[in-house]
Nucleic acid binder design. Structure first.
Lengths: 348, 348
DNA sequence: CTGTTAGCGCGTTCAA
DNA sequence: TTGAACGCGCTAACAG
């Protein structure tokens, strides 16, 4: 049926070992022999048997990229950038960069890690915020340890470092300064004169959520302004819509709403518009991430730009061992405040 | 080191074959024995060796989902839906659904197909429009034939059927009625009184591009209205921005612009706004796909809604063999015209 | 229902 | 520089 390495060897009149050597290019092979082998490969339309190869070599060319929501460009952009550094290169052995969608479910996260371990993945990139549940964190840390033992390189991207003891197996951590970005965003609102600011937070028990809330509260505390109402929700538009209505119910005098991310912010905007409120004249709205569509909203969204592409690309290179991180293995990416039309001064 | 099946067998005092049987659950095993084995698995923290398993069984639990652009929610939504039908959930026979980002590059598409063939993938889902280059189409068809021979189930999602002889290995095809949707969209514009309509087409040589253009031209032809200017571009915002400017240069009297998709349409809107034109008073704009953010644009985008989630989920089920398609193996999904604020009547 | 026996196709020693 | 032989860890017959 399908051609095997032995078939190629027979056709090229060499031993299977020699074929293996030219295919892997790690051993010296005479130019003439190599030529003959490659021709045979071509003529037989031979494709290496991955499982057999992985079994013998005890490693595979699979690189897993875990994302919380593949339909969200926040993850799509990072994954795309990472993947282009992994699968793209015309270099030696191609790696198969694959993205695994956990949907934010802890069980699925663990399932995927197990499946990647089962496949003897060469590397694993975990993107986005982590769940803060201690049990789950421990389970993930254990799995990562197991993966690293088996030779997988572990990279965290857009995710905070693991707790000290668990950080061991992690080769590199690229983290976003969510706290700082959030703080600057709220400072911007305060500078505009806002004193009653509502907050639409992301899902509870997530590092990203907590850090962004902390930055917000820190800015308020520094200014001596009491926090406004806060509600939690998921990272979708609908959640932002509902949350904005809830915030206004809790405090009808709000003059600004800060959202967990841009998608949520757009949902909040829709809710405000549906109530006949004008943005930013009646209420200012701000998001986070600066996804491509944020600038097309009505009005354009004030937000914090995260270097998603850069972080993803770097994570890809780290996973391939094409780049080393400075001592400590942790790099922090900062966000940039993008002031646009959705925030403005309070009414006189 | 890592525990193997033999270790588990020894600990459970059974043969390796028995362990294999309880793990795969395809064979009758006494409840007591199964219990003992599962305990041993747990105690040893045993994880099946995927490559070894795939080698012996001549198939793997990998399911590949090829997308043109993972950062585009059009693909993210389909991939997410497909993936949720395939893997990650609770259950014994887990499949590993992985998405592969071709970036629209023909070479990478073939590379990924080869890598999936190498891994002995259980199924492959190809999403989105295909390149129309005959050489590439033939190469893809050949690869798919090879994959199918090796036991992979092939599903096309949001992609037209292959040419008759090549359709053989394809288990199922879910296609979008791009032509019909596009035609209805243009009919809507014509009904509003537009007679000079510019068109921002997608990348050349792509089926999606051609079908949408054909539907547009068909509507015009039926109405006896001559086609306006048409320019090609990629599926990003920038491309829409530049294209809109170019269209207005070609014909300053345009009253409407139809774009290849929503992202491009938003870019076009930005260009029009930057020229001081009002939407839809001066120029109407329409998109395609109805991605989630389209409703938040200013004004909200008139577009054609495609059942991306439904198509993706169905593709996932077909890939798993959980569902059969009616004779012919082809199902067509139709788009729904969504009329919103970005299109309006021409000025009197 | 369970154990025994062969490979699956390749990488990698060791010699030559 | 090349070949021969072994084993990676598991599944799939075939017995029993």
């Amino acid at each position: 049926m399908t051609a095997t390495l032995a078939d190629v060897a027979a056709r090229a009149r060499v031993s299977p070992a020699t074929v293996s050597r030219v295919l892997n290019g790690n051993y010296p092979v005479a130019a003439a022999t190599r030529e003959r082998v490659l021709r045979a490969v071509d003529e037989l339309d031979y494709v290496l048997n991955g499982p057999a190869s992985s079994l013998a070599a005890a490693t595979s060319d699979l690189v897993g990229i875990l994302v919380n929501d593949i339909a969200d460009p926040f993850f799509g952009i990072m994954a795309s950038a990472a993947q282009s550094e992994i699968g793209g290169g015309p270099g030696a052995r191609e790696k198969l960069a694959v993205v695994c969608n956990t949907g934010g479910s802890p069980e699925r996260e663990l399932t995927y890690l197990t499946l990647l371990q089962r496949q003897r993945a060469a590397a694993v990139i975990l993107t986005g915020g982590a769940l803060e549940d201690p049990d789950h964190a421990a389970a993930v840390a254990a799995k990562l340890g197991r993966l690293a033992e088996a030779g997988a390189r572990i990279v965290l991207c857009g995710r905070p470092p693991l707790a000290a003891p668990a950080q061991g197996p992690v080769a590199a951590t690229l983290t976003f300064d969510n706290r700082g970005g959030s703080r600057r965003l709220t400072e911007h609102l305060l500078a505009l004169g806002h004193r009653r600011i509502g907050y639409v937070a992301g899902p509870e028990e997530r590092t990203t959520t907590r850090h962004r809330v902390e930055g917000h509260l820190a800015a308020l505390a520094d200014a001596g302004v009491p926090p406004g109402p806060l509600v939690h929700g998921s990272y979708d538009r609908r959640s932002g819509y509902d949350a904005a209505n809830e915030l206004l119910r809790l405090d009808p005098s709000l003059t600004a709403v800060v959202a967990a991310n841009d998608t949520v912010a757009l949902g909040a905007c829709a809710a405000l518009r549906d109530r006949g409120l004008s943005i930013p004249d009646d209420v200012s709205v701000a998001g986070f991430d600066d996804l491509p569509f944020s600038t097309d909203a009505a009005p354009a969204l004030t937000t914090v730009r995260l270097p998603l592409h850069e972080a993803g690309a770097r994570a890809g290179r780290l996973a391939m061992g094409k780049e080393q991180l400075p001592p400590g293995g942790i790099a922090t990416f900062h966000g940039e405040l993008m002031v646009r039309g959705s925030t403005g001064g309070t009414r006189a």
